[in-house]
Amino acid sequence: MISVTIIDDHPLVRDGIRGWCARADPPIEVVAEFADPEEFFDAESAPTTTAIVLDLQFPGRPLDLSVVARLSAEDRRVVVYSHRTDPDTVLDCLERGAAAYLSKEEGGDRLVEALHAAVTDQPYHSPTMAKAMHSGRAAIRPKLSEREREVLLIWFQTESKVMVAQQMYLSVKTVDTHLARIRTKYAAVGRPAPTKAALVARAIKDGLVTADEL
């Protein structure tokens, strides 16, 4: 069963998400709810769930997308669920590791779909994401972390994700997570790379790896 933590300051929104999750097929379990990201980070024992539904704006706080990066760095699948739909914010969240980005106008069915896609490392494009991907930033190179670049290079140099995991002392699941985020970042700038060959071509063209390194 998929389990979810909700971080949103609106009780009605949390109630709505909880209801959509309960009616999902199969059902999605809402394990915990927080009205502010700091409540989540300050919790003595942060709930272990397969995904987090995250709002971006909270009373008395400026917009802070570092929360997305912080959660993603902990290998949590983050689905942003926000009223903001401007392309820069959407792409910035995806570049910081969000698995998906939905507008609160998109409703429960799409949120459930996004949660299922996030926990199975499947690509998901909401209408909000699709619009952002066709914005003026569509031609830019995605910003990969040094860790992501390292995973990508070793994956290119070896035969399997298992070998990457062994060489980097990571779990295969963590390797999968890094590769899924890299693909999401490429999709976010309008340059999807669904296969290994496509990723190689993109990475060489963008200067992330060189032919000699391969």
Rank of each mutant, 00 (worst) to 15 (best):
L94G: 02
K205N: 14
K104P: 05
A114K: 00
M163L: 15
T174A: 14
L170A: 09
L152K: 01
R61P: 01
P26F: 05
A51M: 01
D86Q: 10
T89V: 14
R149F: 02
E148D: 12
H116I: 12
I140A: 12
V172T: 15
R70D: 11
L144K: 06
A117R: 00
L91Y: 01
R61T: 09
L208I: 15
T184N: 13
I182F: 06
D15M: 11
T210W: 10
A211V: 15
L56K: 07
D25L: 10
D121Y: 12
P192Y: 07
P11N: 06
A117M: 04
M1V: 11
L102S: 01
G190M: 05
M1P: 14
A139F: 10
R76W: 03
E159Q: 13
A118I: 02
C93R: 01
M129E: 14
E159S: 11
D36N: 10
D25A: 14
A193K: 08
Q166E: 15
V79S: 01
R61G: 01
A132E: 02
V209W: 05
Q122E: 13
H178S: 09
V189F: 12
G107P: 07
V13E: 08
I52W: 00
I2N: 05
C93M: 05
A165D: 10
E150F: 02
D42E: 13
R137M: 12
S135C: 11
T128N: 05
A165Q: 09
V119P: 02
R84I: 14
G190T: 05
F34Y: 14
L71T: 07
V53N: 05
V164F: 10
A22K: 13
A46E: 14
K185D: 08
V164H: 09
A117L: 04
S160N: 07
I17D: 02
A201I: 08
R191N: 14
A198Q: 14
E29A: 13
A201E: 15
A118Q: 03
